[in-house]
Amino acid sequence: MYTKESLIRNLEQLEVDRNGTLLVHSSYKSIGEVEGGPDTILDALTDYMKNGLLVMPTHTWSYIDENNPRFHVQDSPSCVGILTELFRKRPGVVRSLHPTHSVAALGKDAEAFVTGNEKCDTPCGPQSPWGKLLERKATIMLLGVDLRRNTFMHGIEEWANIPNRVADRPVLLYTILPDGTEIPVPSRRHSGGENWSDYFWKVNDIFIKKGVMYTGRFGLAEVRICDADRMTSLLNQMLRINPDLFSTIDPLDPALEYEGDRT
């Protein structure tokens, strides 16, 4: 059985920057049996990052839409796992106001990090917390999940203006504050009739080869530790060569050579 102390040792072994910005995508079940359950995992993460900024996605895209347009900041549950749902309710945690792709943050500059998210008309715009991850040269931890759950990669595609990634026509959604105030948020949702992230797995090996990502363990879970800055640089290069990189299941072209690739 894993304990808070053993999980903190795992984070130390993973060499996560305690003073930096850490975004965690997670699968609770992948970690194995933990003394105290999910709260112990959150205790380990928050204690480890007490001098930095800890961020988790608290998305609601699975049920907030034009037929159900009201996102209640305080009450609308996260659709991306139990750890994210419990984290957003913790003392001191602040949640951003985007109706479909909110995040929750705790620690250094948390308020500034989430501020203004409701002004973004796409899920992962450059002024959103997803863009701020790049500004901060953040670490992205995929805890028991793979690159298909890496929302930041949607952001890179948005910023590169890859066709068919967001709708041309916005739908009117509303963010509801705890005091009942309604904020109208025109939102251009992810589009195209495909789940483009299903193909994010294609860059797993080149991410490791190029030093964008490395792997380790947190409890029983396999963990991928990603460098947001390096990831953006490499994917921008790959998307310039092939804008349809994640539009098809076709594997990477082994004949293509990317900057620094000499093996």
Results as ranks from 00 to 15, higher is better:
residue 11 L to K: 08
residue 158 E to C: 06
residue 102 S to V: 13
residue 176 I to M: 06
residue 203 V to N: 08
residue 199 Y to A: 15
residue 235 L to Q: 01
residue 140 I to Q: 06
residue 38 P to H: 05
residue 8 I to M: 12
residue 51 N to M: 00
residue 228 A to E: 06
residue 90 R to Y: 02
residue 227 D to E: 03
residue 32 G to D: 10
residue 12 E to G: 10
residue 208 I to D: 14
residue 204 N to Q: 14
residue 156 I to K: 15
residue 199 Y to E: 14
residue 251 P to N: 11
residue 190 H to M: 11
residue 91 P to L: 02
residue 183 I to V: 04
residue 195 N to K: 13
residue 190 H to Y: 05
residue 57 P to V: 06
residue 253 D to M: 03
residue 228 A to Y: 01
residue 196 W to D: 15
residue 190 H to L: 11
residue 232 T to A: 14
residue 194 E to L: 09
residue 170 P to R: 04
residue 3 T to L: 05
residue 136 R to F: 02
residue 137 K to H: 13
residue 258 Y to S: 13
residue 197 S to G: 11
residue 213 M to Y: 05
residue 212 V to D: 14
residue 263 T to F: 00
residue 132 K to V: 04
residue 12 E to R: 12
residue 220 L to M: 06
residue 163 P to R: 05
residue 193 G to E: 12
residue 112 A to V: 04
residue 121 D to K: 03
residue 163 P to C: 05
residue 19 N to R: 14
residue 152 F to N: 10
residue 97 L to E: 05
residue 251 P to Y: 01
residue 100 T to Q: 14
residue 117 N to W: 01
residue 125 G to H: 02
residue 24 V to Y: 02
residue 188 R to Y: 03
residue 226 C to Y: 01
residue 29 K to I: 00
residue 140 I to Y: 02
residue 127 Q to F: 07
residue 130 W to N: 14
residue 235 L to N: 09
residue 24 V to C: 05
residue 8 I to Y: 01
residue 111 E to M: 04
residue 48 Y to N: 01
residue 24 V to A: 14
residue 197 S to F: 01
residue 77 P to L: 00
